[in-house]
Simulated scan of single mutants.
Amino acid sequence: MSSPGPTLHQTEVANISLTIVAVLVTSLRLCIRVRQKRLGIDDAWAALAMIFDFLLLIADCLYLQDYEDYPQNTRVALYYMVAQFFYGVVWTSKLCMMFTIVRLTIPGAFRKFLMFTVGIFGFVWALLFSQLWWICETQPSWKSQPHPQCDLGRRVAITQMITDVLADFVLIVAPFCLIYKVRLSKSQKVRILSVFSTSAITTIVSLTHAYYIVAGGGLKEVMSAVVEASMSLIVANLSVVVAFIFRISSDDDSSSTQTPIITFGGQTTRKRIAPTCIAVETTTIVLEDLSESRLRSVKTSDDDEITLNNRERKQTKEWC
């Protein structure tokens, strides 16, 4: 016995709620980057994904309404808009995450591989965009339904499963390769990898969406598509937002104590005691963005999420 599907009202509430959360998280990410004056290509993709998600909300709300007064061609057009905006949100979010990893990588073979992967992501998006038109236009009988919905079938479901799983696998594995040789504490590495590993959430949701495509569509397919789109956008922004929250937390902790700065790896900390003051020399690994043309200079005020440059810098603070 199959479980009852979501109602129309439940689908609309989930659509509005998840979209609002995704838009707020993306807006916070952009505000953080503007405040830090560190806008990049990944932020542009995040903004584009937010626009697609907002358009998906509007198209979905219109598509789910009882629009008997709408012409049939308008109903068909709304279905196509929902389907294509869904692909737009999912794949611009994945491109956003990929460019976040690229900006943290020093020029070299690995960065070239990542840029090649970016091209593959764009190709897959174009493939899915075209496949939808090809499948739906070759079986036009669905267009005459009161509530038109194309039967995408196994081919689309299999294509979505394979591409989503492979893309999320790359987005999870690539950060492991980046921080493998960086001298960070175990807790820091766990925090970094856990942020990027949240891509697994979108994999689970995408597999559920693919299952409902094969099972026959309906509101279950619409609901799973809404969840996948919004979760993809939220996950794409976590690397920036989580780092900003941890930065605020660490600043609060450091201001409430007068103990020396905790360093990550590097040389042995030396303390020099003078009659009137104490100097503490520490070694800190600074994580920063790396541009295409040159390495940016290391700054102690950098707030970026995970800057994976293993250069070290000595910083001396004196309390007199």
Rank of each mutant, 00 (worst) to 15 (best):
D53Y: 00
V190A: 14
F116Q: 02
W125H: 12
C31V: 15
A59I: 08
S297Y: 08
V280Y: 12
S27Q: 13
L55K: 01
V82Q: 08
T269D: 12
I306H: 07
S197H: 00
H9E: 13
I201E: 02
L8V: 15
I120K: 03
L104M: 13
V76N: 13
Q267K: 13
N309E: 00
D43M: 01
I306R: 04
D53L: 10
Y211V: 05
I32W: 03
S130K: 05
H9L: 15
F99E: 09
F264M: 15
R191T: 12
T307C: 05
V241C: 03
L207V: 11
I51K: 06
P71H: 09
T300W: 05
M223V: 10
F110R: 14
H147A: 15
R103M: 06
F113N: 03
L193K: 01
L104G: 04
L219M: 07
V190T: 14
Q258F: 07
A229K: 03
R247Q: 11
S230Q: 11
Q10T: 05
W91S: 07
E318G: 08
P148D: 07
V222D: 00
L18Y: 01
D251K: 15
S144G: 09
L184S: 14
L64K: 10
C277T: 11
V76P: 11
Q188E: 14
M161D: 09
D289Y: 04
E228L: 13
G88M: 04
F129H: 09
D69V: 13
L287C: 02
V173Q: 00
V286Y: 10
T316I: 06
M50G: 14
T100Q: 14
V165P: 00
L233N: 02
D151M: 11
I248D: 04
T259R: 13
L152A: 02
A44H: 05
S27F: 13
I20E: 00
E288T: 01
L287N: 02
S291Y: 00
G266T: 09
G265H: 10
N73R: 07
K220Y: 02
I32Q: 06
A243K: 00
A46Q: 02
N15Y: 06
R33V: 06
D252K: 15
I32Y: 05
G88S: 06
D151H: 14
M223H: 08
I234M: 08
A279D: 13
I204E: 04
R35F: 08
V118R: 11
M161G: 07
Q188N: 12
I32N: 05
D252P: 03
T269G: 11
F113W: 08
I192G: 02
V205Y: 10
A174D: 10
A274H: 12
K314P: 08
S230F: 04
H9S: 14
D304G: 03
T316R: 01
R35Y: 10
Q72D: 07
P260C: 00
R311T: 10
V124A: 12
A229I: 08
L104P: 00
V165S: 06
I120F: 10
D303Q: 13
L104N: 07
A46S: 14
Q131A: 07
S187D: 08
V13C: 09
L28Y: 10
T7Q: 07
A243H: 01
S232Y: 04
S301I: 03
L114F: 06
L287Q: 06
Q315K: 14
